[in-house]
Design a protein around this nucleic acid. Structure first.
Lengths: 205, 205
DNA sequence: GTCTATAAGCCGATAGAC
DNA sequence: GTCTATCGGCTTATAGAC
């Protein structure tokens, strides 16, 4: 555990939190640098531009998220005959763990939901170029488990699942956390509910 | 079919399209008034402020959307023993028809997806105060069809479904429209796929 | 109702001292 | 690497003429 974080890291964390709360256009570099206790000019020195700062906010978390997802997928496949539920868990749990990470990251799921809502071509291309292969790996693994599902139906359903997961992870909407349940337990429960729901949806006739 | 639209309507349509494309903070009133062929000061004259313009963009479409949804729900209930699929269709098809309406409205689903990503308290309260009762009516109708489903599970799943629907309606993600299929057919197909997926998810053990 | 003109302020980015 | 100071441009909103 480090008591000190670099200027770059502090900028990234502050940007993540403020982009989650106000959006990419809505959060200014002045707000970011004030929250990070850093000089305004430091952003351009370390990141060059606001657009590039946005990309780096994604890269920091997504690199680890995809690594964890692919590693979990590998573990599940090594068991020989993975269940649909175990494949979905390999996709969902790393996102959940990131969201519950005490070093921050819960804001990142909201940033990701923003990115989904943005139809910005530049951002989409960056995401699909760098992380599209993860979705493909999971699609193949799920296809193996559901050989009777047509490729088109599979992609429709994965699309629905992605949307549902993004929104569920960023905000547990109408479902309020019961009084006696911790935030972590609430999220774990959410993941379990989600996997059951998604598995049933994928198995639809 | 009217050849003339009022200044107010032209502002609303231009705002809807630009908010969909650039977000609420990202689209300026200057862009909006230029696209609407209207003077800059007209926005403040007709709507008072940018924030209020945002609210009115929602109100214009949501009033009609909720009316159509509740009317479709009523029709389905009058058949006596509605199927889960028919209830979901009563919820999904009005949104679909709005999105395919040639008077615009396809942009509105993207605006709605933005609103989901925004965690802005003011906007959320406005939406839940004015349109929360629709979700409740559907929840009750679905509970009647699935009496064994616990209330908590029901709300979790409706939350997932809302997220998936919003995302799917605003952007058909990885599923590309086949060459020989019209945009309308593509959307209709999407709705059918979605209802099958959501019904199976709700019926999960 | 629609216009011009302008107020008052925030924006991203950078030049240049240290 | 970090700072101050500042540039040029864009923002929402409004006062007041027509």
């Amino acid at each position: 555990m480090h008591a000190h974080f670099s200027t770059k890291e502090r900028i990234l964390s502050a940007a993540e939190e403020l982009f989650a709360r106000h959006g990419f256009a809505g959060a200014s570099l002045r707000q970011v640098t004030a929250a990070a206790n850093v000089n305004l000019a430091a952003v351009n020195y370390h990141f060059g531009s606001k657009d590039n700062l946005i990309n780096e906010v994604f890269r920091r978390r997504l690199d680890e998220l995809t690594a964890r997802r692919l590693s979990a997928l590998q573990s599940v496949r090594e068991t020989g005959a993975p269940s649909l539920e175990s494949l979905l868990e390999a996709f969902v749990l790393p996102a959940l763990n990131l969201a519950t990470d005490r070093f921050g990251g819960s804001a990142f799921m909201r940033v990701l939901a923003r990115a989904y809502a943005e139809h910005d071509q530049t951002l989409r291309k960056f995401l699909s170029d760098n992380y599209g292969h993860v979705l493909k790996s999971f699609a193949h693994a799920i296809q193996d488990v559901l050989p009777d599902l047509s490729k088109e139906d599979l992609y429709w359903r994965l699309d629905f699942i992605s949307g549902a997961l993004t929104y569920a992870m960023s905000d547990f909407g109408v479902v309020r956390r019961p009084a006696g349940r911790s935030d972590d337990e609430h999220r774990r429960h959410a993941a379990h509910e989600f996997v059951r729901f998604a598995a049933a949806g994928l198995r639809a006739p």
